[in-house]
């Protein structure tokens, strides 16, 4: 069979070659930061975190209890109805045991792996999960479907942030 695949260019360099001084390059980084407005729905969501509550919104058309709360239901495209408090317990929808940092470097020797999970919160509609971390659990003990409960920071330390919940621990 005749090969007619056309390939040209793509000159590979090793990191050593790139840094040898013979390959010309410049490096630059943007020295800037961002600030984000919370918006209406997340403003209340985070304000309730400070009080130790998780709050959702209900869609007045499909009656989904939506978490995180939103100003509108993206499925029905109508403004949300009432605010609804949900529980701070839930089940693990899925999880990971992560040994790398955000920049793809390995976590330090002896450091505990990060334990991200999607947690379906009790009281919200089925499948409504939020991403958070797990804690007070050995990595090999985590199971999908496991019941967990939020561990809140002491009231004085809360800032109105998703991290006002330190992590979720097994019930």
């Amino acid at each position: 069979m005749q090969e007619k695949v056309k390939v040209s260019g793509g000159t590979g360099l090793t990191e050593k070659e790139a840094r040898s001084g013979k390959i010309f390059y410049t490096e630059d980084s943007l020295d800037c930061a961002f600030a984000w407005d919370t918006g209406v729905a997340i403003n209340r969501y985070l304000a309730e975190f400070k009080k130790g509550n998780i709050i959702a919104t209900e869609c007045r058309q499909c009656n989904r209890i939506m978490l995180p709360p939103r100003l509108f239901c993206e499925l029905c495209f109508v403004p949300s109805g009432d605010w609804v408090y949900v529980k701070d317990t839930g089940i693990v929808n899925t999880f990971s045991i992560c040994h790398v940092n955000w920049d793809a470097s390995r976590i330090k020797e002896g450091e505990k792996p990060h334990l991200p999970a999607v947690i379906e919160i009790d009281g919200a509609s089925e499948g409504m999960g939020i991403m958070h971390r797990l804690g007070e659990v050995e990595p090999d003990q985590i199971e999908i479907g496991m019941k967990v409960k939020a561990v809140w920071r002491p009231k004085a330390e809360r800032t109105g942030s998703i991290t006002d919940i330190k992590y979720f621990k097994p019930l």
Binding site: F34, W36, T38, G39, I42, Y45, L46, P68, N93, T94, F95, S96, C98, V100, N101, W102, D103, A104, H114, P116, A117, V118, I130, M131, H132, R133, I144, S161, I162, T163
Partner: peptide
């Protein structure tokens, strides 16, 4: 991978210091 940090919701996810692999690992596990 580091450049993907900003895809996470700034208010409800980024404070958890997520990294890109999390979402794929979570999906793969599920």
């Amino acid at each position: 991978q580091g450049f993907f940090l900003t895809i996470f919701d700034a208010l409800t996810e980024r404070e958890l210091e997520p990294n890109l692999l999390w979402i794929f690992a979570l999906e793969m596990n599920r």
